[in-house]
Design a protein around this nucleic acid. Sequence first.
DNA 1: CCAATACTTAAACCTGACTTTATCTTAAAA
DNA 2: TTTTAAGATAAAGTCAGGTTTAAGTATTGG
Lengths: 145, 145
Amino acid sequence: MYTIGQISKQFHLPVSTLRYYDKEGLFPGMERRSGIRVFGEKEVEALRMIECLKKTGMEIRDIKEFMHWCQQGPATYEKRRDMLLEQKQAVEAEMARMSQVLDMIRYKCWYYEQAAADGNEDRLRSMTLMDMPEEIRRAFENGHK
Amino acid sequence: MYTIGQISKQFHLPVSTLRYYDKEGLFPGMERRSGIRVFGEKEVEALRMIECLKKTGMEIRDIKEFMHWCQQGPATYEKRRDMLLEQKQAVEAEMARMSQVLDMIRYKCWYYEQAAADGNEDRLRSMTLMDMPEEIRRAFENGHK
DNA sequence: CCAATACTTAAACCTGACTTTATCTTAAAA
DNA sequence: TTTTAAGATAAAGTCAGGTTTAAGTATTGG
């Protein structure tokens, strides 16, 4: 059993954040003793899951829904799995997008490297896809899909 | 030469967003005719660059700095290249983080798939790393670094 | 010539995830 | 017992990146 201050240190989270999470319903059914929050094993577990879900970019209101399902036991395993699968899809989609963005920026870096070396953009302006180095052409094409 | 409304359609951006970008200084030196914004080739070019930089997650105030450098000609090629290189590092770091998050969530998906199949978490609770399928163990270990 | 449409501004509002502030209560240490 | 630290609350503030609103001005088509 821990106080909010102890949990704050354990998880390197401000006390205000923990209170905010509680206010948002991320610790359903948390015990209180004369008004003071009691963090037990269940809440520590919950917090680990919250940290995980936050990293995936999940919103507080969805995390809240997930934590409430956790309260309800085995009947909600499928719901939890489905939500995680959906979040996995979202993260995979974001990864794919990032990969494309990376190619776009790789091209731009190369472009300004050339411009800096040439002192102007004349050569770059008259350049076609075929004039670019293989790798840059690939980045350009992928980045501009 | 285009009006704000024409650009809004071309780029699928609300007029309010274009005005906001202008207010934030993303179109330095844009022309006006009796108070009305005139979008020329330079602004269209700028907007393409803005869209690109936004995709990388660059903040408006940094994009503003970049666009001002673009105004200043060849003397700022190095600055622009350096800013893009820095942004490339940031995107690469984010990709690496996402990849780890993906492994974490892959493990969680597998966990609830098992829980749903078993109807409880008993087997999972008594499971060690060696009991997990190769691929899941990899995801677990990478996801919990 | 006049209505309709598109443009202008400043300022308020919105969302998400917190943080800060002000005031009050409880618990632990001296 | 009395500080003092740590707990509590509600409400307001913050930040980014816009969006909405209100009220006025300019341009275009019939």
